[in-house]
């Protein structure tokens, strides 16, 4: 049976208690995008500034949410700052793959899910690996992916303007 420590790793609690890149950026040059989790009421507002050469120059986060959504957003902000938009897309795909529920991981309750990341870009997730335990708590997956889905939407909007 998965326990609380599977979900709330120390690094997650650290990002929750000391969130990185909290705040807002001037719009423009930054782009502002909002995300909602309609089930729980979590709200996230991202400010993302992309250079002409396609690099995420800066990112800030405001809004409110649980420790999982806040720490995921905090870790995401650290991970994407200074990366190119293409790199961020790869990272997002890798993260979402980690968050997808594999049947095998549900059957083997309490064990690590199989690494079935063949079609997923070979990206190091680093600290974000700490969120792997969230898949054992399916109702919380949306908390972890909220910031990422919102960022993907924001980058799409930036690209189309």
């Amino acid at each position: 049976m998965p326990g609380l420590e599977d979900l709330y790793r120390e690094i997650i609690l650290d990002h929750y208690r000391n969130p990185r890149n909290r705040g807002e950026l001037a719009v423009p040059p930054a782009h502002r995008v909002e995300g909602f989790n309609p089930l729980c009421g979590d709200e996230i507002v991202l400010f993302v500034e992309v250079d002409d050469d396609g690099t995420v120059r800066d990112i800030k986060i405001s809004g409110q949410g649980c420790s999982i959504s806040q720490s995921s957003a905090s870790m995401m902000s650290s991970a994407v700052k200074g990366r190119t938009v293409d790199e961020v897309r790869d990272l997002t795909r890798a993260f979402k793959a980690m968050m997808s529920i594999h049947e095998s991981s549900l059957e083997k309750d309490g064990t690590e899910p199989d690494d079935d990341l063949n079609e997923v870009p070979d990206v190091k997730l680093g600290d974000l690996e700490a969120l792997r335990g969230v898949v054992k708590f399916p109702v919380r997956i949306k908390c972890a992916t909220l910031a990422w889905i919102t960022l993907a939407q924001g980058l799409e909007e930036t690209a189309s303007t």
């Binding site: 609380l4 649980c66 919380r140």
Partner: peptide
């Protein structure tokens, strides 16, 4: 956050 309380 209520989610975290509820989880515990």
């Amino acid at each position: 956050h209520p989610h975290d309380i509820s989880q515990v």
